[in-house]
Amino acid sequence: MSADFLYGIEVILNGLMAGVMYALVALGFVLIFKASGIFNFAQGVMALFAALTLVGIMEGQVPFSHLINEVFGTEVHHFGWHVPALLAIAITLFVMVAFAWAVQKFLFKHLVGQEPIILFMATIGLAYFLEGFGDLMWGSNIKTLNLGLPQGGSRVIEDMTAKLGGDDFYGFFIDKLDIVATGVAIVLVLSLICFSQFTKQGRAMRAVADDHQAALSVGISLNFIWVLVWSLAGLVALVAGVMWGAKSGVQFSLSLIALKALPVLMLGGFTSIPGAIVGGLIIGVGEKLFEYLIGPMVGGATENWFAYVLALAFLVFRPQGLFGEKIIERV
């Protein structure tokens, strides 16, 4: 096998793994959009906030320390302990559920029945609020997230695959962190699917996504379901924030991963969980492959725009996305 061909495969593998991460972020959007018709612009910031909270808790940072020190003239910064990763993740999850509850209680409960554009604007406001709140709570410096996850290229895979090609091929280079992230994302997606298919709450969630009035009439509390989907979106944000944060540090740019989810959603459809997954994979593989094959001819850096252009082309031919429900009005 020629080295070029093998490199192509490596590019596809890396694309698939990036795609799983995109799918994960897109999933957060789909969950909320399906159940409440809200396009949650704050999903990316939620990932940032979750990662910030996780780091802060692990390192024993005092939340709002700047504010506390200003007001009381104290000098507290650290509790002086380190929380083990698993416990910190559990606490962060609790914080995200509390956030979901607060969002529903103080914001969207008062906006029931409003136009989608109003709800969208509310999430933009929420995004900037949460960004500032995260800074206030944990400080705005760049943090490193050290969960002890393996980093760097996998020697094993490199050695195993080196024999596939000739002398000019050194084996597939695959980042261990990407492998872990892919594994975690797959487990999360599968458990979300099981949850929504087999549990009472999942069934209620699908019912609410389908018809609010009917859901009420069979005894489902919309409020509870909305807190539930925001909590699940918080869980997804936490996982996405952890994985991306471990890769490139916990900083503001983390919230921009939400922008990567937009073309995925356009491709997969805003209301479909399988759509988010397949869309994520297509975008991931597509942009890596395009960069590898066409990139050198046009001067590179195609990853910045390829996904959007692909999504745009897609919109023209299939506005509802790959798996989105086509809306046909009976006249």
Binding site: K200, A204, A207, D210, D211, A214, V218
Partner: peptide, 19 residues
């Protein structure tokens, strides 16, 4: 009529059992 249009008849009736 307020039914869950995307679900099957069986799933629709099952939602009646949620409680």
């Amino acid at each position: 009529i307020a039914l869950f249009e995307g679900m099957t008849v069986l799933d629709n009736v099952m939602t009646g059992r949620l409680n």
